[in-house]
Design a protein around this nucleic acid. Sequence first.
RNA 1: GUGGAUAUAGCUCAGUUGGUUAGAGCACCGGGUUGUGAUUCCGGGGGUCGCCGGUUCAAGUCCGGUUAUCCACCCCA
Length: 446
Amino acid sequence: MFTSLPGFREFYPEDLAVQNHIFDIWKRTARRFGFRQWDAPALESLELFTEKSGEEIVRQLFNFEDKGGRQVTLRPEMTPSLARLVAARAGSLRRPIKWFAVGENYRYEKQQKGRLRAFYQFNADILGEPGPAADAEIIALCIETLRAFGLEAPDFRIRLSDRTLWFLFLESLGVPENAAAAVLGVVDKLERSAPAELEKMMTDALAGTACVPANVLECIRKFITLDTLPALEAFFAGETGEKPRARLADWKTLTGILDAMGLGDFISLDLTIVRGLAYYTGFVFEAFERTGDGRALAGGGRYDALVKKLGGPDMPAVGFGMGDVTVKNLLEAKNLLPAYADAPDFYAIVLAPECRAAALADVAALRRAGMHAEYSFKDGKFGKLVQAAEQAGARNVLIYGPDELAAGVVKIRDTKERREIAVPRNELAARADAVLAGGLDAAGGV
RNA sequence: GUGGAUAUAGCUCAGUUGGUUAGAGCACCGGGUUGUGAUUCCGGGGGUCGCCGGUUCAAGUCCGGUUAUCCACCCCA
């Protein structure tokens, strides 16, 4: 007996119905925001990813040599592919470029809950716009996507932070530019590491600088307690430089846009979020489950230097990714997944062999008219057939028996209301349509 | 990649100090006196007890290994 590979999923119809629901929400929401869908190959050259993330990434890739001797890998993410597509046509794409993708990504990791080896991710990016308006639009899309699933402010929040502000803060502490990214790497671990360990990491990060690790750590601990915009402004009030003032103006613009969209309640300022990746350059954010174990549902931020690093032109960019696994887990826990619903509108039951031709003709007509119609393959007794119809989830049963055909009618029985009407067969399509729109009474009887 | 726990039917789980042919509920399939509910009654199929080896007269049960799953690390693009 074969089984699927570890970390890979199989989708039975009821599973795929859920998956399609998630994809539908992703796609519909992105389109409402004016994002256009793109895609790229799932198999790419290994270099595309080592260029961005370094050789150490290979440990977590599904990579191999193909029959032509090429070093290739299943894509672990879609951003480098996006950068390539945009770079190739950078001169002719109208800006801002608002694109989204829904694709399967692969990572060779030991799986655990919420973390598989193959997963789908929703990515949305805006390229070519350096100002905070693009950041706000991306965050708004992230929020509205989660809301479209039925999640609201009590269910999740956006923890918003800013690497630009972090760099300005570290500069004010005297941390040199070339050590700042390493220090942020330590900040990323602040919540989940022991004090002694942190001090050691900070010492490593500050090696070769004049800074005292313990002092820097202490200042950082104070800095991360700032959780409102006024507190931030007060903190930087003593700064005479132009840069902090300009950055705080960006913060006002960003939060002003989100407030105007009615999304202010979903945002909280949280400087502990820095995101581990070195390539983020400005606002960064994560969508967090508010109850439960507080897993990240989505994450993103501004990455103004990445497109150029991957061989493209100077191209400011901001985006986020949202995985299907954690979203599905949360929706399951909140009972927000739709009931399995590809039930037929009509299910014809045939009580005698001589009635079958009429049933087949009518089912075919209903199908051509766009309705979901099914029928029993076997003739049988009424009780069995009506039960089969109900188990198929049919809202309405069409009854084809000798009595009905002799009278030139077919009975439409509503399985929920447990009553029925008879309609002339030659009017069935129109009457069936009326039943779907307004129930049996709307269709009238005879 | 490291450590811990778990593994019996499609699902949720029983299975006695080791003892004969492996159990339940749900699900699935079939049948029950002329056409209005079957949410009922009866019956049935489905298991290498994760896999390999060891101990024993005898292993679902004890031991070792292995694989998978879950959890915590690592990582989190």
